[in-house]
């Protein structure tokens, strides 16, 4: 190694940036060459002087504390956010949570409103009182009229004989007019009369149950009537339709083209019971009500 080669690497040597091989080569050269050795030593000591004699500044303790405090605060904030938002720390979500934290009323509103809306929806879908249909209203009005003029039944024109024959047939049933003799059935027939309902001729039958509970049974030509959109319930294999007007419960059912309407102040359950009782009698089913033709 020449002096020139050694001098070219003088700083790398002094900064300990050389590989083992070349480092030892230079070291050997320095052992042999006094001139180079002196120069290297000079540079070495100069380097040391620069390091030792350059003033070292120390950061003031207050600033150090401030920085440490700041870092801790930043840490606290960040972990706080993490706790609030769980894994995702999207700023949008964070803002929403902040809004609710600021105004708890919003949170309550957010919780209550869905319940309120779904409650209203359920009410309107299932529980809203539907106005009674026209047929229910008419039947109830009719019952209301008849219940006040007790006992005025005529068994009806224009063919009185035919009507009484029908009625005699009726007499064989449970609600026969034979009032004095008690019978096994709870319901008895009070009377029967020619009537008008919904612009048609009808047969009005007045029934009585124990405890003076009065029922009106309207027998109408229901060939053009549709009652399927009324409330429906099945009992004894028959579809009964319900309605309510003027505190009277109305029970409707159809048998062939004949529409029966039973009206009373009694409960729906009792109405069904009476209706079942009347319909149970097979022979009653053969009875075709007489609808006198209009002149």
């Amino acid at each position: 190694m020449t002096c020139k080669e050694a001098n070219e690497r003088i700083y790398e040597y002094l900064d300990c940036e050389l590989g083992k091989d070349i480092y030892s080569e230079i070291k050997i050269h320095l052992d042999l060459c006094r001139k180079c050795c002196n120069k290297f030593e000079f540079e070495q000591s100069l380097k040391k002087v620069i390091r030792d004699k350059s003033q070292t500044y120390k950061i003031s303790e207050t600033v150090r504390q401030r920085i440490v405090k700041q870092l801790t605060e930043v840490h606290g904030e960040r972990s706080g956010i993490k706790q609030q938002t769980g894994e995702s720390n999207g700023t949008k979500r964070h803002k929403v949570i902040q809004l609710f934290a600021k105004r708890p009323a919003y949170l309550i509103a957010a919780a209550v409103i869905p319940f309120l809306v779904s409650g209203l929806a359920v009410y309107f879908a299932f529980f809203r009182p539907t106005p009674p249909s026209p047929i229910i209203r008419e039947v109830a009005e009719c019952h209301d009229q008849h219940i006040h003029d007790m006992g005025v039944f005529d068994f009806v024109s224009p063919d009185r004989n035919g009507m009484s024959r029908k009625f005699n047939e009726l007499r064989n049933f449970n609600f026969a007019v034979a009032v004095p003799e008690p019978n096994e059935y709870e319901t008895r027939l009070l009377g029967c009369k020619d009537c008008y309902l919904a612009g048609r001729k009808s047969v009005h039958v007045e029934l009585e149950k124990r405890m003076n509970m009065r029922f009106s049974l309207e027998i109408i030509d229901g060939s053009e009537m549709n009652i399927n959109n009324l409330k429906k319930e099945f009992s004894g294999g028959r579809a009964y339709h319900f309605g309510r007007h003027k505190d009277y419960n109305v029970l409707l059912w159809k048998d062939g083209n004949t529409l029966y309407a039973l009206t009373s102040e009694a409960q729906k359950k009792e109405l069904i019971h009476v209706a079942d009782e009347t319909m149970q009698m097979r022979r009653f089913r053969d009875f075709q009500p007489f609808f006198p033709k209009e002149k």
Binding site: Y57, I59, S60, V63, R66, I67, Q70, L71, V74, H75
Partner: peptide, 17 residues
Amino acid sequence: NREDAEDLVQDTYLKMH
């Protein structure tokens, strides 16, 4: 100067974080 140096160090640590 001291002020600038303090600011620099503080900024450095915040950036580091």
